[in-house]
Write a protein that binds this DNA or RNA. Structure first.
Length: 667
RNA sequence: GCUGCUGUAGCUCAGUGGUAGAGCGCGUCAUUGGUAAUGACGAGGUCGAGAGUUCAAUUCUCUCCAGCAGCACCA
């Protein structure tokens, strides 16, 4: 066996290319970089030692593998962002607002934020001032020094600086030593700026690129809504001005594809204060909705599901039995089951305690169990796959509402599978396959799968949870899906699989879900007769693919920038005339399109063709059939597709046949 | 729900302590045109709601409502 270099002066450093170099113990990353090349030392901002990010100034005491981090890598960029937040933004704020209290300042995708308590509210206008101070600090090119401190010294330093949040963090830490403080503009004792941080940080501000503060918002201390609300300042930082510009441009582009904006422009739906969080679907939007629903219905019908429809308004006795009254009541719309008073002066309903309450259903599951419970079920009946395009109401917090993405009335592509324990895996595998097909049909190929495991507050024994989690895990493996596991993220009644889809601009949406439930069948006393002649509890699988139709349509709109696939487009083809002489022929063309099942509209307005093309392009009509005197004469159409300047002249018959073919849904 | 910002014509927005303006859209008329804006004329607003200050409030103050950005929550 090879002897270890223990307590010797020499250590071996292995570089990424496999080269080994020997150094004195205690050598720093910076010294190693210098020994390789001075230019590398100049560009270096941190090191990765045995797969851990460390500061350049950290001494290395044992044999290690090491790579030099520069800002040209993703992790280098992230370190730079971290320094901009913790060293530049925080310092600028303290310079301008000495009474501000710093909390935490981590990096996030594409940027960073810092949570700070201010005495007076901060507005977006103040950001310019802070940004100017940040630039000034950056120009100093100050070195960032690091020190390791005891708990007592760290607390003292923050006490002197009146930083209660930092003190709170230190006090809660389990360790007693090695608190990393990064200082700038003077040592800790000299009263320089300090920040507590797990690091690493840039060695100096000379490595900082371009940055911009973006917005201010409130955020709770430690993410807990019972805590004080702090002011969160968001910013972004990049290597160069050019990169920053690109990113800001990207943000503008994302704004343009906002489904709320596009929905109004395309005349799909609207919202108004009298029905906050509920959609007024316009004819065009509802066409999309109906197409989407019909598509899922075909998929479900051919996957062994039977569709049902259950009541909207249900007595609270059932919600009490299901557990919703206890666990979910604050999200439910509750309605007294009482004839309203018609007294002109009196209240619309009496204010005495209501004898009977009903609630709009927030979920379909209890109602589905009621259908299951009708009659006696045998193991031979299982699995029963019960689907419903269930319209659910949830009393969402006002601040949570967001266009179609978060509404109070939604329709889920919901279904519940009642099965035996031994069927869990096969049912789950089948569902995973179905989900994959549907997402692919709808244009989402980047799907992330998460297995959410038992939360702390849960129903059911550990034995049941073991069984449930293993069942889902096994199903994911059999379905050949890559997945990650999330501890503590499961529902209180069972673990779940979450399907997250990534859209065209990189955002991730949780849509599909498969949840295993041992609790509800118990609470609502669902049972079947097993092979042995005894009663058994069925297992319930809650599952949805789109999640809510409303939200999924919002995602589709943003994913496609409103250029929906042909089969979902509200208007698939507009027949536009060049001259009034072609009007009768255009009418024939439009009728022929409709007869072929294509959603077509006629545009014979007294406008120039340029104008019509422009308008329909803006409206994102995928196909234009342009007809003038020539086309009328020859019984042809000039086809123009959205996003193309080309025109194709084809015979009417052929054009309709191929378009009808293209307009077919994917399934 | 919490923090901050915003609310003027159908839309996007300008503006003012003395009751309002642009562009687009809309309507009428003329124009019959060949693939991203033809021209002229015209109609549209209790300036989010309520209260207060003032001789006078769309403008200043307060309250409420709604929207937006986050947070918390979540499909």
């Amino acid at each position: 066996m090879e002897a270890q270099h223990q307590n010797t002066d020499q250590i071996t450093i292995t570089l990424p290319d496999g080269a080994r170099r020997t150094y004195n113990a205690g050598v720093t990353g910076l010294e190693i970089a210098q020994s390789i090349a001075p230019s590398l030392a100049k560009a270096a901002i941190a090191v990765r030692v045995n797969d851990q990010q460390r500061d350049l100034s950290d001494p290395i005491n044992e044999d290690s593998s090491l790579s030099i981090i520069k800002t040209d890598s993703d992790e280098g960029l992230e370190i730079m962002r971290h320094t901009v937040a913790a060293q530049i933004l925080a310092r600028a704020v303290k310079n301008l607002y000495p009474n501000a209290k710093l909390a935490i300042g981590p990096t996030i995708e594409n940027g960073f934020y810092y949570d700070i308590e201010f005495k007076d509210p901060l507005s977006t206008d103040d950001l310019e001032k802070i940004e100017a101070e940040m630039r000034r600090i950056k120009e100093t090119g100050a070195s960032i020094l690091k020190s390791l401190n005891t708990k007592a010294d760290t607390l003292k330093a923050f006490e002197e600086r009146a930083e209660p949040y930092k003190m709170d963090i230190v006090q809660r830490a389990e360790q007693n030593d090695n608190f990393q403080l990064y200082t700038q503009g003077g040592s800790i004792e000299e009263g320089g700026f300090i920040d507590l941080c797990r690091g690493p940080h840039l060695p100096s501000l000379k490595h900082v690129g371009a940055f911009k503060l973006l917005k201010v918002a409130g955020a709770y201390w430690r993410g807990d809504s019972s805590n004080q609300m702090l002011t969160r300042i968001y910013g972004t930082a990049w290597r160069t001005d050019k990169e920053l510009e690109n990113y800001l441009h990207q943000l503008e582009e994302a704004e343009k594809r906002d489904h709320r904006k596009l929905g109004a422009e395309m005349d799909l739906y609207h919202f108004q204060p009298e029905a906050q969080g509920s959609v007024f679907w316009h004819p065009k939007g509802f066409t999309i909705y109906n197409q989407m629903e019909a598509y899922i219905r075909r998929r479900l019908n051919n996957s062994g599901y039977r569709e049902v429809k259950t009541p909207q308004l249900i007595d609270n006795k059932l919600w009490e039995a299901s557990g919703h009254w206890g666990k979910y009541r604050e999200n439910m719309f509750v309605v007294p089951d009482e004839i309203p008073s018609t007294d002109e002066d009196g209240p619309v309903v009496s204010d005495k305690a209501f004898e009977k309450l009903m609630a709009l259903k927030p979920m379909n599951c209890p109602a589905h169990v009621q259908i299951f419970n009708q009659g006696i079920k045998s193991y031979r009946d299982l699995p029963i796959r019960m689907a419903e395009f269930g319209c659910c109401h949830r009393n969402e917090a006002h601040g949570a509402l967001h266009g179609l993405m978060r509404v109070r009335q939604m329709t889920q592509d919901d279904a519940h599978i009642f099965c035996t324990e031994s069927q869990i895996t096969s049912e789950s595998v089948a569902f995973c396959d179905l989900v994959k097909k549907v997402y692919a049909d709808l244009g989402f190929n980047d799907v992330r799968v998460v297995l959410a495991l038992r939360p702390e507050a849960r129903a059911g024994s550990d034995e049941i949870w073991d069984k449930a989690e293993n069942g889902l895990r096994q199903a994911l493996i059999e379905a050949g899906l890559e997945f990650t596991e999330a501890e503590g993220e499961g529902a209180f009644y069972g673990p779940k699989i979450e399907y997250h889809i990534r859209d065209a601009i990189g955002r991730s949406w949780q849509c599909g879900t498969l949840q295993l439930d041992f609790v509800l069948p118990e609470r609502l006393d669902a049972s079947y007769i097993g092979e042995d002649g005894d009663r058994h509890r069925p297992v319930m699988l809650h599952r949805a693919i789109l999640g809510s139709l409303e939200r999924f349509i919002g995602i589709m709109i943003e994913n496609t920038s409103g250029r929906l696939p042909l089969w979902l487009s509200p208007v698939q083809c507009v027949v536009a005339t060049i001259t009034g002489k072609a009007d009768p022929y255009a009418g024939e063309v439009c009728n022929a399109l409709k007869a072929a099942g294509i959603r077509a509209e006629l545009d014979i307005r007294n406008e120039k063709i340029n104008y019509k093309v422009r308008e329909h392009s803006h409206a994102k009509v995928p196909v234009l059939f342009v007809v003038g005197a020539r086309e009328a004469e020859e019984k042809t159409v000039a086809i123009r597709r959205l996003g193309s300047q080309d025109q194709n002249v084809e015979s009417l018959e052929k054009a309709i046949e191929s378009l009808a073919n293209e307009c077919k849904p994917p399934y």
